[in-house]
Design a protein around this nucleic acid. Structure first.
Lengths: 155, 155
DNA sequence: GTAGAAGCTCAATTGAGCTTGAAGTCAACC
DNA sequence: GGTTGACTTCAAGCTCAATTGAGCTTCTAC
């Protein structure tokens, strides 16, 4: 890898850490998990292209939304391997999340309603209450944290 | 233990588990953590008053909102110890959550906006982007990684 | 009166998502 | 040429929220 004189193409791990707000240890961990990758300097030190920052941003976003690292990895795997991802590539990925966010928001709205209506009124027996009923919570839900259970048809 | 003919006052752990959708092991765990408690039959088996179901419902709700068990314990500790909690008691507790839910919803809305605006447009450098900046992430709301970068003492 | 389901305790394990520590390499500065 | 500091790997440790297993007791149905 030859870097062009005009711009510093490659970043060190601490550069990336500083710019992303993600600890170096976490960056190594993400690399180990296959979420990001790095070239190496002759010394063995990691050298990151600037594009990694967007990838990391994506990871941070996705985590806040509630995806696990495995899920995030699966999303990232959809990006083209042969070329730098474009805006379109990124927005194609993230478009699937909008509905997920909406579902989570809807759940929070239901919970909020439940706080006043359900816990307050005493109907909260959990075997009846739609807001947190076992059918919703039971299904270990192959992927995704439990918090993400959206409304499924309850039995 | 004599149970009155008209209604079964006390529930076994599997009754409670079935009615709440919470595993027996979790119920024992909650007891160990001081979130719920049980009387004991002569045999040593747990016997729960029906009111425990509402307490468990509260725990489940609170978890879905994003509180830790410690936080939930702190909330539950505010309930009167000398008498069965009333609707008012419960709704007083849960009223503080509404704003928490609103905050989380607001964050999700921002994230959703960021998906199209920010990841799409390429401004997402994380050191600048409002949507996922350290200050936001430090809030530590709900689920997700515990160590928010901006939060760490090491800087 | 006995099989087997359900309960008990206590300790260990799980899994996600990291951090921390030990031991070593490498380049730069004085 | 010695020290500092950023980097490396690998292993161990940590939190949270449970689950799992061992080893034993008790309850329920036939």
């Amino acid at each position: 890898m030859i870097s062009f004189s005009s711009m510093p193409e490659l970043l060190t791990i601490s550069d990336v850490s500083r710019r992303s707000g993600v600890a170096s240890s976490a960056l190594r961990f993400y690399e180990q998990r296959g979420l990001i990758c790095a070239e190496r300097a002759g010394s063995g030190h990691r050298r990151y292209p600037r594009t990694v920052l967007r990838r990391i941003a994506f990871i941070v976003f996705a985590q806040r939304i509630g995806l696990t690292l495995d899920e995030i990895g699966a999303e990232l795997a959809k990006l083209p391997a042969d070329r730098a991802p474009t805006r379109r590539d990124w927005s194609r990925l993230s478009s699937t999340w909008a509905s997920r966010i909406d579902q989570r928001i809807a759940e929070l709205e239901r919970l909020k309603a439940g706080l006043t209506e359900c816990i307050g009124c005493g109907c909260l027996s959990l075997e009846r209450c739609q807001l947190a009923n076992p059918a919703d919570r039971a299904a270990g839900l192959g992927s995704g944290p439990r918090y993400w259970v959206a409304d499924r048809p309850s039995g």
